[in-house]
């Protein structure tokens, strides 16, 4: 088991009444799974991502990540756990505009205080793996959307995360680029990385090993 969510509730107060964002949500994810998360807008996909990423709190329920009980950790411990285990990939790529491809990929390692020589080796490996060595000194605005997303994925992978959270990773891409990225995800999954992707596209969802449908803040796999 990689993570397990038990009876998770999250709500906001609106006009004195609770509006549930997550409503008795139960989910267990095993190591090596490739989950496709689907659901209409407002079904709670983003909230669930934030909860899994430990970037957001929940109001009731238990959250276990490997053998840690997340609901008992303070925010500093949660940040540490997140930084060491989870890589985030965004629909809008969210690369750092002022940094080159190389520097974007290198930055997470800087924050982990990895030594310079090791850093170089790791970034070089990553550039190689994604076939973007030639683009390493370009800035994000000089790349196509697909290339930018590759850099985004490389940046997420550089810390060797156990889990990748991808929030509509191909939402801004055309279908060819989209298929390439999905194939890449599938390959990564084969290498053993657990992936959860949120998507609106049935074809993208088909790349996953399991489909989870979300409705009104809880899992609805009927």
């Amino acid at each position: 088991m990689l993570l397990k969510l038990n009876h998770i509730y999250k709500w906001v107060k609106s006009g004195g009444r609770r509006v549930f964002l997550l409503n008795d949500l139960n989910l267990t994810i095993e190591k090596g799974e490739f989950i496709s998360l689907m659901g209409p807008s407002g079904s709670g996909k983003s909230t669930l991502f934030n909860v899994i990423a430990m970037l957001d709190t929940f109001d009731e329920g238990d959250y276990f990540f490997e053998n840690e009980t997340i609901h008992d950790l303070n925010s500093k411990q949660k940040t540490k756990l997140f930084n060491e285990n989870i890589g985030f990939i965004f629909q809008a790529y969210h690369l750092l505009d002022d940094l080159t491809v190389y520097e974007n990929i290198e930055t997470p390692l800087l924050y982990k205080k990895i030594k310079s020589s090791e850093r170089k080796a790791l970034v070089a490996d990553m550039l190689d793996k994604f076939n973007i060595v030639g683009k390493k000194d370009l800035f994000p605005h000089q790349l196509s959307g697909g290339q930018q997303q590759l850099v985004g994925i490389a940046r997420a992978l550089i810390i060797k995360p156990k889990l990748i959270l991808a929030d509509e990773p191909t939402g801004n891409l055309n279908s060819t680029q989209s298929d390439e990225i999905m194939q890449l995800f599938k390959d990564l999954n084969t290498e053993g990385i657990t992936i959860i992707q949120a998507t609106h596209s049935e074809s993208n969802a088909a790349y996953g090993s399991r489909l989870i449908k979300l409705l009104d803040g809880s899992v609805n796999n009927k």
């Binding site: 985030f88 690369l95 750092l96 930055t107 924050y111 940046r155």
Partner: peptide, 16 residues
Amino acid sequence: SKEVSIRKIIGADKKN
């Protein structure tokens, strides 16, 4: 703010 958020998500802490 966008830059700060990205940096935080890819591992920066407040001190960084």
